[in-house]
Simulated assay, not measured.
Amino acid sequence: MTPAREAVTGPDLVVMSLEPWDDVWRRNQHLVAGLLRERPSARVLFVEPVSDPVHALSRGARPRPGRGLRPAPHVDGVGPRRLWLLEPTKLLPRRVAPRGDERRAAVVVRAARRLGLARPVLWVNDPYGATLARVSGWPTLYDVTDDWTAASRGPAESRRVTDADRYLVEHAATVTVCSPALADRKRDARSVVLVTNGVDVDRYRRPAPRPADLPPGGTAVYVGTLHADRLDVGLCEETARALDGAGTLVLVGPVALDRADADRLRRAGVAVLGARPFDEVPAYLQHADVLVVPHVADDFTDSLDPLKLYEYRAVGRPVVSTPVAGFRDTRDPAVAVAPPEGFAAAVRDAVTRPARRDAEDPAQAEPIPTWSRQVALMSDVVDAVRRPAPTPR
């Protein structure tokens, strides 16, 4: 158990996030909420990804402008008007209006001034926040959770991401990383601190009723964003067909796949349930026959510290994963690692095995990092970033 920490003051934060503040809580939300609870006088401006109406139209979605500056919904333990959200609007594509990052930075600076955030700590999770770091002059923390320089992108976008990442690594006061692989990749930074993901273990182990939309019979459940950079769509199809007559592959999480890939999954018999609020997620995990990780194994996924590693382990159900970072390294006896060619068969075996059991006594298992501990680590980093560097003599 993490020792209680005394409440501390400030500083105010501006967080450039890769994800919106919504009901599907990810690393940023857990850490930011924890810091606000720990620091009763601090305020946060949480900058969400831009709303892109032109891109929405190109995907057949309904376009809408960004929601601008607004108070966040209620967060337990956080007083009103201490957390603000900002969703800017991207009016035109980069090829037509190439200075979009500068315009977004100006919007953020104006919002911070409007809120009275005179000299906040800038917490950058989105590499394109490099422009804001440059123009604002705010003391900067670069929190790296994905190595986007290793993701498969077109030449122009790869170059932009690489340039932004390099700037932040060179100029941020501290770089925090979520995995040892990222720590090695960012070793040229002035300061690198490992802050892994975590989980609220008690909440995931508190018994919950079976979700009504979980298919009957055997279930192999995946929880996480459905994104082609991580999810192996072909392997999901193969697994769903291997389970035919024995169970169902169930994917729970925001759908960031293109329509063709999502249709492929449904035709193969995959139950694509979509996003669920974070307080409902434990029930899907607890009632799975097996939890699965059908991820692509490449340089990008090798940099990750999957949040689901901690969530899966907390509920103690059997796990089958491809050989990806985190899962291939754990000593948890409930986790089985299978190569792609044997993954579908391993999942079917786990679903149909007559004598299944939960993981061994959690008290004897490998310790699971908790969010309270990770908040304490990040809190120390924030304090170090806001302190001015000593003046050379």
Rank of each mutant, 00 (worst) to 15 (best):
R5E: 13
R5V: 08
A7R: 15
T9K: 10
E19I: 13
W21D: 13
V24D: 14
R26T: 08
R26G: 07
A33Y: 02
L36Y: 00
L36I: 00
R37L: 09
P40Y: 00
V47C: 14
E48Y: 00
V50D: 05
A56S: 12
G60I: 06
L69T: 12
R70P: 05
A72E: 12
R82E: 03
L83S: 09
W84Q: 12
L86Q: 04
L92S: 06
P93Y: 09
A97W: 10
G100D: 15
A105R: 11
V124K: 11
A130C: 06
T131M: 10
R134E: 15
V135A: 09
G137A: 06
T140M: 04
T140H: 04
V144K: 02
D147L: 10
R166T: 14
E170F: 03
A173E: 13
R185F: 07
R185I: 12
K186I: 00
A189K: 10
V195P: 01
V195T: 09
G198W: 01
V199Y: 03
R206P: 01
D213I: 13
A220C: 10
G224Y: 01
A228C: 07
E237T: 10
E238I: 01
T248Q: 06
R259D: 14
L265G: 05
R266F: 00
A283Q: 09
V290A: 07
V290D: 05
L291S: 13
P294H: 12
A297H: 12
K308F: 04
K308E: 07
G316F: 07
V319W: 08
V319H: 07
S321V: 06
P323E: 13
F327S: 06
R328T: 14
A334F: 00
V335S: 11
V337F: 04
P339K: 04
E341D: 15
A344E: 02
A350P: 03
V351L: 02
D358G: 15
E360P: 13
P367H: 08
S379F: 05
A384M: 06
A389C: 09
P390L: 05
P392A: 12
